[in-house]
Simulated scan of single mutants.
Amino acid sequence: MLRMNVEKLMKMAGAVRTGGKGSMRRKKKAVHKTATTDDKRLQSTLKRIGVNAIPAIEEVNIFKDDLVTQFVNPKVQASIAANTWVVSGSPQTKRPDNLENLKRLAEHLQKQAPGTGPAAKQDDDEDDVPELVPGETFEAAADENQAS
């Protein structure tokens, strides 16, 4: 079994050259990737989708299972056509004690918002299709219009 001599090992470590005359050059240049590259790529993709900034949003809460991710004063961007929402800011993950109360409050607020919820869908359906008079059909009404 070989035994290493600590003094000889320390002498060899001290003799290693990391730079200076006659030292070996690097074979590969180290590439430092910055976070701004990723951010620029994300912003260009969002521009292509056509997102618009939504101002004056004070708080965003995302409910998932029994956790709530909360953003305070976030930057919110949306593209309704692409069904894409971007929320950026510093998140805080919480496990609330009264999760059921928060869920009920979120559902209540969603029903109150104009143009959302089941009440808005019912109103749209009523405007699209006119009601028929009992006993009449579309064919009879069309024949009546052609005769006159």
Rank of each mutant, 00 (worst) to 15 (best):
L132Y: 14
E126T: 06
A30Q: 09
P114C: 11
E136C: 01
L42K: 10
K94W: 00
E139G: 01
I49T: 06
L9M: 15
D38H: 11
G22F: 05
D65F: 08
I80P: 11
E100S: 13
G20W: 01
Q92T: 14
V129Q: 02
M10L: 10
N145P: 02
A15W: 04
S44E: 15
M24L: 10
R3E: 11
K75V: 02
Q122E: 15
T84W: 03
D143L: 09
T84C: 01
L9T: 15
Q70A: 12
P134R: 14
E58L: 11
L67P: 04
E126F: 02
V87G: 10
A147T: 09
S79V: 01
T93S: 08
E7L: 10
A82M: 12
Q122H: 06
D97I: 14
T18C: 12
P114Q: 06
M12T: 12
A113K: 07
V16C: 09
L67C: 07
Q92L: 10
K47M: 03
N98I: 03
N73I: 01
F71E: 03
A113Y: 08
G115C: 06
S79F: 00
A119D: 13
E58N: 06
E7K: 07
R104K: 15
H108V: 10
I54H: 00
P134W: 14
L102A: 03
K21Q: 02
V6E: 12
S44T: 14
M12W: 04
Q146W: 11
K33A: 13
V68R: 07
L109S: 12
E144L: 05
P134G: 02
V133I: 12
D66N: 06
A113I: 02
D127Q: 03
T116R: 08
R104I: 12
A140K: 04
V68L: 14
A147G: 02
W85C: 14
K28R: 15
A140V: 03
E58G: 14
R26C: 00
K94L: 15
P55D: 06
D143M: 08
K40I: 05
V6F: 10
L99Y: 04
A120R: 05
A81Y: 02
L2S: 14
A106N: 11
M1Y: 03
M1N: 10
